[in-house]
Design a protein around this nucleic acid. Sequence first.
DNA 1: AAATATAGTTCAACTGTAGAACAGTTTCAT
DNA 2: ATGAAACTGTTCTACAGTTGAACTATATTT
Lengths: 151, 151
Amino acid sequence: MEDEVQHWINRYMDAYMMVTRQVGARIKDSIAADTTNDQYQILRLINAQEQCTSTYLAETFCVGKSSITAIINRLVQAGIIERTRDENDRRQVYLSMSEHGKSVFEAAESQVHEVVAPYLFHFEKKDIETFIMMFEKLASLIQNDNGGKSQ
Amino acid sequence: MEDEVQHWINRYMDAYMMVTRQVGARIKDSIAADTTNDQYQILRLINAQEQCTSTYLAETFCVGKSSITAIINRLVQAGIIERTRDENDRRQVYLSMSEHGKSVFEAAESQVHEVVAPYLFHFEKKDIETFIMMFEKLASLIQNDNGGKSQ
DNA sequence: AAATATAGTTCAACTGTAGAACAGTTTCAT
DNA sequence: ATGAAACTGTTCTACAGTTGAACTATATTT
């Protein structure tokens, strides 16, 4: 029983590392050379979030706020992201994509689509649903378990 | 149909990023502070590979060989890894764990186990098998598709 | 009004990455 | 056998990402 769990974890870690690394490398090759994978992930979060803040990104990305400042500074520098202060609470800074940013992001999205989509055709529709649902369940389990190391 | 594929990809990317980041953060918190996640992944590869070389690590990890040199230098510095030249082909350098390295690695393994294992109990045995098998199939599809962007 | 909390930035030190130039070693063609 | 080509790994420089502590500015609490 313990052995079985250990065995699953090893297989999961092996497959996981392989997929993470290889997909990451392919995505990097396909998106514009001056956009990094981390920057693309940040853009996805900003795109999906109304009135996105640094604090939200830091928590979701599991890094300190100073890392977010560094990434956002580069994206602002590149004219992709704009900062807007909230006039009601001037501590808050909302992050949004400029017009140029939107087109960079959309180009990256479609490149990622082209990289990932071909792999889907090797699987049954039903299995894809199951796989994604399990992944989502895992994500939500982890998310609802913040801080509590046990359980 | 195209929409369905797009939708799958978005859901996959969302769940994938969440799981990657959160699991990464939890593993980092649990393993020794002076070992990074990337270093741990490298140790897993070295552990699994007889006569491991930099070239093998670079290919598997999808990075340039100079990145591997940098990581290995730090691990050698920390007394975790040892380099051994092949006397038959003096270009090759085999990487292996020192006794200290082995104990560091085993401690990390058991910490990772403690972090990951609890999540498994939320799933059916059958579903875990399916999930891991799909992950492995995906990994092997990607691996057998080196360079060829299409198909 | 003063203390406390919150949002974000700055800074220094470090890890990881890329790519080009390089050194040493082996293989291969002539 | 010799010189060219191929291969393994390292060095170097520049940059992206991360951390954690110190800091600024603003809002909230008491």
